[in-house]
Design a binder for these strands. Structure first.
Lengths: 253, 253
DNA sequence: GCTTTCATTTCGTAC
DNA sequence: GTACGAAGTGAAAGC
C-alpha cells in the first residue's frame, strides 16, 4: 500500500492534478480545502454517511461513495448504482471541510431555499483535485426547437395552407409554441413535443386554446393542433374529447 | 511528475482502489478495461471529445472532463460546471474501451432506444478504479407519500368530516391520490403535491374529476380538492374556473 | 416492453 | 426572486 501524494502538470496555481490514495484524515481535509481555495474539481472516495435537510430531508448510513465537488458550488454523492446521485446540492452552494474527531466532515449549504448537506467520512480511500480547462459548449440536435424550425421552414408539414404568425405567442394560460392560421383563415394554436406524449401535453394545449377563446371572444373558430411523433391512447382520447387535433412529426429527418 | 500506479486495500478481486496519474494511453485503456471486468466504479479525467446519438444527438469538442462508469452500466461525463452531466448513458449499457491511434476510446451502447455514447481521450490525466461496498439505502422524508400519510392519519386536515375510502383509486384518466367522501356523502377526489404547484397539477385533478363523473354517471356531486403547500396565480384561476378546491398543507410537521 | 406520475427533479428564460 | 415549460429528463410502479 502506498500513500504518497501524486501530482501532474504543476502550474502557477499548483498541480493541475493532485491525488492521494489512503490519505490520513488530516491530509484528506487539507487537500480538499486546497482544492476549494484553488477552484479545483474535487473528488473524494471513501466510507461515509450523508445527511441532507432542505426541501426534503434524508439520511444515508455508512457505505463507500464517490463525492464530487465542483468549483461552481455543486456537490454530487454517487453510489455504485444509478445514473442519479444519491445526494447532491445544486450550483451556488458554499462548501467547507473540517476534521471533527476521527472524521472528515464536508458541509455544503445554501439559502433560498435553506438546504444543507453533510458528508462525514470515517475513512477516505482517495482524494483528488483537478484543474479543468474546458471552453467548449455542447451542441445538441433533435430538440423541440428543431421541430419548430422544421415547421417554420415548411409550414405544410402541419397541413396544407397553414401559416405561422408568431412563436411563443402569449395567452392568459401561457405561451403557444406556434400561433397561426389555416387555409380558411381560422386561428390555429400548435403545441410542439419532441417525443411521444401523454395526457399532460393535451391538457397544456387545451388550456392555451381555452385562453385564446376567452381572449379573442371567438368561440367556434379556434383550432388546437398537437404536433409530436405520436400520442398515447389516453392522450388520443383526451384530444378527441376536447376537439383537438394531432399531426405526427419528429424533430429530425 | 509521477506516473506510477498507486493501489490500496488489495483483496482477492484485486486492489480495492487503483489509481494512475498521467498514464500512457495504453495503460489507461488497460486499467479501465480491468475495472469493467472487475465490476469496479471507474473514473477517468482528461482531455476528450464526446459524441452522442440516440433519442437526440450531440457533439462536444475537446476539453477536460471527468468520466464515471458504474458497474451497473451507466456512464456520466461531467464538466466543471452544473449539477447535471453534460453527457451520459443510463444503467444497463454495454461499455467498451480501446485504443485507436493515439486516442483512448470509451464506447457505451444500449438498445431500446438505440443510443450510443463515445468519449475519445487524447490525453488521460488520471484513471482510477474503486471497489464499492455499500449496503445502505437512502431514507427520505418530506415526499408526497408523507403528505398522503399525514392525511390518512388525520383526514380532518383536508376538512372536517372527510373520509378517505381508497388511495391510488383508478379512473379512465389515471389514479386518484386519495379517493373519499365528505361529511355530506359527496364523492371527493384529492390530488396531492408536495410543493407549490402550477396549472399542470390543476389539469391533472380536473382530468380525474371528469373521469369520475363519466365513470359514475353522477354529474353534480363530485368534488375535486388539490392539497399542496400553495398554488400559483394561474393555478388558482384554473381551480376557480373548473370548480375545484384547494387546501394548503405541507408534507411535514 | 409501454404508460403514467413523482422528483430535494434540473435547467433555461421571461417577467 | 418567481413562474412556467422543456428535458436525450431519471426512477418507480403498474400493466
Amino acid at each position: 500500500m502506498q500513500s504518497e501524494p501524486v501530482t501532474a502538470g504543476t502550474d502557477d496555481t499548483g498541480p493541475r492534478i493532485r491525488t492521494n490514495v489512503d490519505p490520513s484524515l488530516r491530509e484528506a481535509a487539507e487537500i480538499i480545502d486546497d482544492g476549494f481555495r484553488g477552484d479545483r474539481l474535487v473528488t473524494a472516495f471513501g466510507r461515509c454517511t450523508v445527511d441532507y435537510d432542505g426541501r426534503a430531508s434524508s439520511t444515508l448510513g455508512l457505505g463507500d461513495r464517490h463525492v464530487m465537488c465542483k468549483p461552481d458550488g455543486s456537490i454530487l454523492v454517487h453510489t455504485d448504482e444509478g445514473q442519479q446521485p444519491v445526494n447532491w446540492q445544486p450550483p451556488g452552494c458554499t462548501h467547507e471541510v473540517s476534521t471533527e474527531g476521527d472524521r472528515v466532515v464536508l458541509e455544503s449549504e445554501r439559502s433560498t431555499p435553506a438546504e444543507r448537506l453533510v458528508v462525514e467520512f470515517e475513512r477516505v480511500g482517495q482524494v483528488s483535485t483537478f484543474a479543468v480547462d474546458d471552453a467548449t459548449e455542447l451542441s445538441l440536435d433533435g430538440t423541440e426547437e428543431d421541430l419548430r424550425n422544421r415547421i417554420l421552414d415548411d409550414p405544410e408539414l402541419v397541413e396544407q395552407g397553414f401559416t405561422p404568425l408568431a412563436t411563443e405567442r402569449e395567452t392568459a394560460a401561457g405561451a403557444i409554441d406556434i400561433f397561426g392560421e389555416d387555409a380558411d383563415g381560422r386561428t390555429v394554436a400548435v403545441e410542439l413535443k419532441r417525443k411521444r406524449v401523454g395526457p399532460d401535453a393535451v391538457g397544456q394545449l387545451d388550456r392555451y386554446v381555452d385562453a385564446l377563446r376567452r381572449d379573442l371572444h371567438d368561440d367556434a373558430d379556434i383550432r388546437g393542433i398537437l404536433v409530436s411523433p405520436s400520442v398515447t391512447d389516453r392522450a388520443a382520447d383526451l384530444l378527441e374529447r376536447n376537439g383537438l387535433e394531432f399531426v405526427s412529426l419528429t424533430p429530425r429527418k
